Amino acid sequence: MFVVIGTFTGGFMGGAPSEGLYVFEVDPRRGDCRPVQTVGGLVSPSFLCRHPSRPLLYSVERQFSADRADEGGLTTWRMDPATGRLEQLGRCPSGGAFTAHVAITRDGRVVTTANPLGPTVASFLLDEDGVARRPSSIVTHHGRGARERQSAPWPHSSFADAEGARLLACDLSLDRVMLYDIGREDGRLEPSRQPFAQVSSGAGCRHLAFHPDGRFVYVVNELDCSLSVFAYDAETGSLIVRQTVPTVPGEAVDTSQPAEIAVHPAGHCLYVTNRGHESVAVFAIDAEDGRVRLIGHEPTLGDTPRHIALSPDGAHAFVANQLSGEVAVFVIDAASGRLTATDCRISVPSPSCCLVW
């Protein structure tokens, strides 16, 4: 399998400066890891997503160029399925500054970006070649939250539902998951009938993940180390909170910040990375009501686990330990979802996101 790793080129938060995007061919069972390509000339390509049916991927940069910080960048890449090498197909401004997240609808029509210093969420209707050329829509967030860190809006991520009809955007400062309808023909974003769902005051919602059956949404909250479980009705767009649980032990709350969340393709468990606690929290998911139960915490074997990505077959997990400059690879137990570390380690400066191909 191939793994594309996004990084912080400027050594964000004290990490080592990197060159850009890194591509590796990995065989976790044998512990093999072979570098394929390094793509430079980018400014912190820190998040990635993959087209659902084409050999395309999309990366966002924190700045469009070294001397232009007022906007981030969005780049479309083609990956050679045989070699893993990337070829740039197009690049455009991301619709806001300090771009932190990129996602794509399941039908491959629309790409979205979250731009904390916009503070905006933008949509891009892809052309016939799957390339993002210009924003179709840009929406701006307004307001603030309870904490000092929440003094201005901070759109941190955005995710489309299974139908590609609605976008859910986490705003860390507003403590809200904002809901937008996605225009079928033009990809434009408009407020949904329920314009937002609230998490706890001061929680700081960061990222979310849908359950494979589409009935549940799981939101990881960075500022109070919690996980919120929502029931989701795709037909009406209603999002109702059902449960909130901690992601770390009580004594670790003040020194930890959860970062990424991933639901197993089988839908029976989910994973949350905890920076500071340096762990992956593993939760079992109840098939009936979507509620979660903590199974345990697995050490990430590194410092500041910013991201976790699961292989498409659900057999392996890749954890990007940002400040220790290494991606650790784990085997996932098919029955329990528990993680077991392998000998496979990928050395990369300041890794922030992994895309497993």
Rank of each mutant, 00 (worst) to 15 (best):
V102W: 14
V102T: 15
V102P: 13
V102N: 13
A103L: 07
A103D: 15
A103G: 15
I104M: 13
I104A: 11
I104H: 10
T105K: 11
T105L: 08
T105S: 15
T105E: 14
T105R: 13
R106P: 00
G108W: 10
G108E: 12
G108L: 13
R109P: 00
R109W: 06
R109F: 00
R109G: 00
R109S: 06
V110I: 11
V110L: 10
V110C: 14
V111S: 09
V111Y: 06
T112N: 05
T112I: 06
T112R: 01
T112P: 01
T113D: 03
A114H: 08
A114N: 10
N115M: 11
P116F: 03
P116S: 04
P116Q: 05
L117V: 08
L117N: 09
L117M: 15
L117F: 15
G118W: 12
G118F: 09
G118Q: 04
P119H: 08
P119C: 09
P119T: 04
P119S: 09
V121K: 06
V121Q: 02
A122K: 11
A122H: 04
A122F: 06
A122Q: 12
A122C: 04
F124C: 00
F124K: 13
F124I: 07
L125K: 13
L126C: 01
E128S: 05
D129W: 02
G130D: 00
G130I: 00
V131C: 03
V131T: 08
V131F: 02
A132Y: 02
R133D: 01
R133S: 08
R134I: 00
R134L: 01
R134M: 06
R134D: 02
P135W: 09
S136W: 10
S136G: 13
S136L: 03
S137M: 01
V139K: 12
V139C: 01
T140L: 15
T140H: 14
T140E: 13
T140V: 12
H141E: 08
H141G: 03
H142L: 02
G143V: 07
G145P: 02
A146S: 15
A146Q: 12
R147N: 07
R147I: 00
E148Y: 05
E148W: 03
E148H: 07
R149F: 00
R149T: 06
S151I: 05
A152Q: 15
P153A: 11
P153T: 11
P153M: 13
W154I: 05
W154F: 15
W154V: 12
W154N: 14
P155W: 07
P155I: 09
S158L: 07
S158G: 06
S158W: 02
S158V: 11
F159I: 13
F159D: 09
A160R: 11
D161I: 07
D161N: 15
D161Y: 03
A162M: 11
A162E: 13
A162K: 06
A162G: 09
G164V: 02
G164H: 05
G164S: 07
A165I: 00
A165T: 02
A165M: 11
